[in-house]
Design a protein around this nucleic acid. Sequence first.
DNA 1: CAAGGCGTTGTAATA
DNA 2: GTATTACAACGCCTT
Length: 586
Amino acid sequence: MLPECCRKNHLAALGWGQSDIIMTHRTIHLFRKGLRLHDNPTLLGALESSAVLYPVFILDRAFMEEAMARGVLRWRFILQSLQDLQRSLAALGSRLYVVEGRYDQVLREKVRQWGITQVTFDTEVEPFFTRLDDDIRALGQEMGFSVQSCVAHTLYDVQRIIKANGGEAPLTYKKFLHVLALLGAPETPARRITREDFRQCRTPTEEESEEKYRVPSLEDLGIVVESEALWVGGETEGLQRLEQHMQNQGWIENFTKPRTIPNSLLPSTTGLSPYFSLGCLSVRMFYHRLSNIYAQSKNHSLPPVSLQGQVLWREFFYTVAAATPNFTRMAGNPICLQIDWYKDQEALDRWKTARTGFPWIDAIMTQLRQEGWIHHLARHAVACFLTRGDLWISWEEGMKVFEEHLLDADYSVNAGNWMWLSASAFFHQYTRIFCPVRFGRRTDPEGHYLRKYLPVLKNFPSQYIYEPWTAPQQVQLEAGCIIGKDYPLPMVNHREVSESNLALMREVRREQEKTAQLTRDTADDPMEVGKKRACQREAETDRSDAFLEKPERAKRFSHAEGEAKALACSWPSETLRLPALGREVM
DNA sequence: CAAGGCGTTGTAATA
DNA sequence: GTATTACAACGCCTT
């Protein structure tokens, strides 16, 4: 235990108000993300200000499914992380209380039952969490407990970044780095919590608590997962993986993201994202460890491509998301280009379930669904294919699929990258369309990755494996896989659809520019602007309907002998709505 | 305000 | 096959 004056200074530095710096608090520390005992300033502050501390995880299924765990793989990862946390706390003489039920009800009940005077939790920036935080603060007012929270999930308090940039989020990475330079280095990570901390501040144990508050199993929750876990959740596993990478100093120093390989059979990046996204690992700790390694090296890579650069990308998207309303949607999102994407459930399903007929795309989607993690560049490939590249389907649909399957699913980073890849925000060079055949072939010409995830193609000669529909019938027979029967024909002709999509995108942007011009011209007369916009929108409707007629759509995705029919090039210009321009690792 | 520079991770042609 | 180069392109940002 620290001497009294040190302890008070420390708490004040963490943001604890003077009046709350008493040692006699009876505290609930709410774990949500931040499932760790290293660099956990909130928990540390809770321990230093309390006589009694209850580490609690409220398992509110509605909240969890909305904010943290859409799919089964992520559920498993979270439960494993909770089990690990429980083991670590138990080793320090404490324990984790997992309480199932509605958040507010559980909290109300436990505050009363345990005589709680203080509730602590990490600061989060996502709307799901900030709403919850407001509710907890209101409950504190009502029931008379104080509330404390520290920033621990990001390198900086993103509100500070926004303030330093004049009240709005920087929308380019360069600008973002510029603002960070004004703020200086991120804070030093908090020290690891030890047994000593729990000697001064005890966790009471109830008679029946062992069974009553244990971490539930998947079966308890009625969640079924078929596949085995390639990624085991928890701080312990995360730290182990981190340490392994840290031993490879040369690799750390020279890391250059665009040069990592999307289709290597073992992750060519750190693969730590699931641990960061749930807070099993602290990004601040990682960042500082990297700084130490960089300090010892003669030269090392730099942001945006370096490892620190990756953490900063995450920070970048967190910052923009915190300052942007409706960040995960197109509608009402001021930084997002407004596009009339196709609504084509069948095409979306084929993409989702790995039946596009492009092995490169289908293998990635298979890995995603089976394992819950795919390489950053692989995400680019399938995201580009779904949106601006081939299918012209809304990035929101893709984002939802990623949210369901990715272990590192993250509100800010996921939405930001989907906008990026669909050229809806941040990224504007929409002429750069990934080719679903060549992209993967560049780094894996033999197709080892495809053979692993699409075993039906495993006997195809390398020459044909990225575009198996071009293989002669004899080759298909010998490979034991007839294209169109055992594996689908490509659902689109990439060359044709990407060309026509490019034209659509060009039109979207031309139209957007026109409308922006209109807004500028009539800037002093808002009524006039409104009228003109309304006029435009009216004109939109008829032509777009004609365009989206069934036959045309059907043709687009019907595929006979590899000859997909592309659409006529021009997108009816008036179908575009005005984007209110205010302004994403996967 | 106009013009030029720049952008995490293209493509096609050429050597 | 691999590496280099030219190209094309648009919006945001800085000067």
